[in-house]
Structure formats: C-alpha cells, structure tokens
C-alpha cells in the first residue's frame, strides 16, 4: 500500500510487462483485484453503517490492483500495481483492461481446441 497509485497508462504498461514476465516461466500466477475505493470508514454516517446496502449519494471510484502473487518469502520479487478508476472512466478502462489481459493470458486454451472438446462432450452425452 505504501507505493502510490499509478495512472491508467502506467498501470496498463506495467500490467503488460507483468504478463510478459510470466510468459517465460512455466508456473506462477497473477492476481487482479477490484474493489470500491472506500474512504475512511469512520467518516461514514450511522445510517450508512447500519444499512450498508443503501447506495451512496454519488458514484465512488474503484481501485484496481495487480500483483504477481509473491508473498513475504520473496518480497524482493513482489510486484504490486494499483490504479484508481473514476466512475466515468469505467467503460473505457475495462475495454483496455480486457485487451491487456487477453494479450497477456496466452496459456489458456485456444478456441479450436475447446471446440473439439465440447464436441466430444456432446457425443458422450448423447450416447
């Protein structure tokens, strides 16, 4: 948390690098987290505390975090990124976000392979 939040451009740039780094190894993980960016909870009124499902008066920003899953053991290798997305930027952010992730997640099954499997499954089900 000590490191400051990045701008979105920087975040995507570094996220892309995080994925690239992962490509060269045969194991590991990347964690992406999103959460409402809540301000100091003590500032919340009693009503807000008692009825947390009530909507806030105005949209709140959300925070996006990314890490490479390294914990205390190898702290020096730990990569931590975070950026804040304002409500009006959400749409544009997620389009880019999906692009970066799609480009980075190269080890998932490609389309044609999964199709074959689905076919086989179907066959099995009918027989």
């Amino acid at each position: 948390m000590s490191s400051g939040h990045l701008s979105q451009d920087e975040f995507f740039d570094k996220l892309g690098r995080l994925f690239n780094h992962r490509k060269s190894s045969d194991h590991g993980a990347i964690y992406l987290t999103q959460k409402r960016l809540a301000y100091d909870p003590s500032e919340q009124s009693t009503t807000a505390k008692l009825f947390p499902d009530l909507l806030p008066d105005k949209p709140l920003p959300i925070i996006i975090k990314a890490t490479n899953g390294k914990s205390k053991r190898d702290r020096s290798d730990k990569e931590k990124l975070s950026t804040i997305v304002q409500p009006h930027e959400l749409e544009a952010f997620y389009v880019r976000y999906a692009d970066v992730c799609k480009a980075g997640m190269t080890l998932l099954k490609p389309r044609d392979k999964s199709k074959k499997k689905a076919k086989a499954k179907k066959k099995k089900a009918t027989s």
Binding site: D26, A29, K35, R36
Partner: peptide, 11 residues
Amino acid sequence: SSTRVTTRYSI
C-alpha cells in the same frame, strides 16, 4: 463497500 473481485491467472 466490502466486496472485492479477484481474478487469478495461474500457470
């Protein structure tokens, strides 16, 4: 306010 969404891409 408390719910988070985590995406894990693991190899």
